[in-house]
Design a protein around this nucleic acid. Structure first.
Lengths: 136, 136
DNA sequence: TATAATTCCTCTAGCCACTAGAGCTTCAAG
DNA sequence: CTTGAAGCTCTAGTGGCTAGAGGAATTATA
């Protein structure tokens, strides 16, 4: 049996976050000690590790809910898990694309070496969209 | 003079967002009509365009506050604007790097073509961090 | 066994940058 | 002068936590 602090140390998930996941229904309410403190089993530990790992990969709590549900039903088709992951991959890719456009624009405007704000490319660009090179 | 709706159409900033910016102190409280409706000048329009454009480039509201302040003081050194923009560029770049690591991992795990969840790489990987190729 | 230090409890509120909706008032066109 | 669109304020919700208050339980040391 683990206390919430031990669980936190083993998974790297902060204590308030564990309680938050419980509230959100991602993890079951664990048993309690006589004094009402949470006591977790190994099952609780691996479920939380699963969640932690999914969050690291950027899945939303809603996606994780689906993935956890699937993981409890090994006979279900793999394609369900795939579509969640593939949709997330697409999302990640479009975020990358957007950030790369930003990066390009930011690089361009920070190249300016004017002395003061009056002629500074950063400020000028922000004030006038027409000075941008690309759409964003 | 523009109504809030006209300002919204011209800048592409939604009406509630304009009011939110006013509340946050990014834009001055505009004059009002006799019936208490907001009436904006061209100055208000260009200030809001500046904000819109900065948000498009991903600057935080706090950064924008600084940039707006600089734009009002053309004699100030350009370096202040640069450091805000450069810091933001770094932030964007580190987000890109992180997302690219995610992308790699997600691509890898979605390649699996198992039939059901029991042997699916997506679920397996999430359950066991040891199966990941890279740190993330 | 007594006490001190640490961990844990619940509850509320805050973060960012909006967005949605209720219930009401004002404006502009015909 | 009527009507419908657009405006007003205010409150609450979004996601995924995080922080703090004020108290109770547990654990380690003396």
């Amino acid at each position: 049996m683990f206390s919430i602090g031990q669980l936190s140390k083993r998974t790297g998930v902060k204590i308030p976050t564990i309680r938050y996941y419980e509230q959100m229904g991602l993890i079951d309410e664990p048993e309690r000690s006589e004094g009402n403190q949470r006591r977790y089993t190994k099952d609780g530990l691996s479920r939380l590790s699963f969640i932690r790992h999914s969050r690291d990969l950027g899945f939303s709590v809603e996606d994780i809910r689906g993935l956890l549900d699937l993981s409890q039903h090994p006979e279900k088709p793999c394609s369900d898990a795939h579509s969640i992951a593939a949709r997330h991959l697409q999302d990640v890719q479009s975020r990358i694309a957007k950030l790369r456009r930003l990066e390009r624009e930011l690089k361009r405007i920070t190249k300016c070496d004017a002395g003061n704000v009056a002629t500074c490319a950063v400020i000028e660009t922000l004030a006038d969209h027409g000075l941008c090179e690309t759409e964003h």
